[in-house]
Design a protein around this nucleic acid. Structure first.
Length: 271
DNA sequence: ATGCCGCTAGAGTAGCGA
């Protein structure tokens, strides 16, 4: 079973490039981020005519996640459990889950983790109500959700745009990112807290060393200089890691016409 | 030091987010 993650940076803008990649890569399941569309406006037909079931969790203008699947989906849920630190509900559409009913059912979580910039520190702590505090509090909620799913002892994975550069080797120019919300120590620590629950970074289970990226900024000729960062990840639960056959980043997509600034990452599971 | 892109509002550019 091939499961992919792709931050498409706007479904309308990717109406050509996304179906072209789908037809070539033929994933069974895809989690999408930044659909930037309300559910009613999502062009379901493009995917349904290719045999995909479509489940969206969108909002106006920003964010928005979705799951496409050629296999039946069960128990679809939308939104990351938990509220904002002040108790208000989280209005941002960044999380969707479904169980993919293949030979071995796999719970798939699609996520769009907050970017977190600008970093605002007040009295040595992330400023309350700021974007960086939101990112870190969201990661705490994600950790809680991961713990709840681990307790079920069933294979699952969490795939998406994590907006986290895990280590310096995951950036062409790590010094340029050291104070950024994607790489700051608090961000990396929160990511490791989740990882240390027992997850496997699927890509790093197969490929070591520098020079592997999933995002290249549109600005400053980043793609032409291969000035990228690895921020799209697929974390596997222990039972799911046992099923891993392969994990790849489809880098060449970035050099095509009207590309997203991210490229797809996928796993092949023996499931 | 810097080069972009997608979205919305609402009429040309401007602001936001990333």
């Amino acid at each position: 079973m091939k499961i992919a993650s792709f931050n498409i940076n706007g479904i309308k803008a990717r109406a050509q490039a996304l179906p072209q990649w789908l037809d070539e890569a033929e994933p069974d399941v895809v989690v999408l981020q930044e659909i930037k569309s309300i559910d009613e406006n999502f062009p379901r037909e493009i995917f349904e005519e290719r045999g995909y079931t479509v489940e969206t969790h969108g909002q106006k203008s920003f964010n928005g996640v979705a799951i496409l699947s050629k296999l039946p989906l069960e128990d679809v849920t939308r939104g990351l459990p938990g509220d904002l630190p002040d108790g208000a509900p989280d209005a941002q559409a960044r999380w969707i889950e479904a169980t993919v009913m293949g030979d071995t059912p796999i719970r798939v979580c699609g996520l769009y983790l907050p970017n977190g910039n600008p970093v605002e520190i007040e009295n040595g702590a992330p400023k309350e109500g700021g974007k960086y505090a939101y990112k870190l509090s969201w990661m705490k909620r994600m950790k809680a959700r991961a713990e709840a799913l681990l307790a079920l002892e069933e294979p699952f994975l969490m795939a998406g745009d994590y907006n986290i550069i895990p280590q310096d080797e995951d950036a062409k120019r790590p010094e340029a990112w050291q104070d950024d919300a994607l790489a700051r120590p608090e961000s990396r620590a929160a990511y490791r807290e989740i990882l240390n629950l027992g997850f496997t970074d699927a890509f790093r289970a197969r490929t070591l060393g520098p020079g592997h990226y999933s995002f290249w900024d549109y600005q400053a000729g980043a793609w032409n200089r291969d000035d990228g960062i690895r921020i799209d990840h697929i974390l596997l639960s222990p039972a799911c890691a046992d099923l891993l056959r392969d994990c790849q980043i489809d880098k060449e997509i970035r050099g095509r016409e009207k590309p997203s600034d991210h490229v797809p990452i996928w796993v092949d599971l023996d499931a």
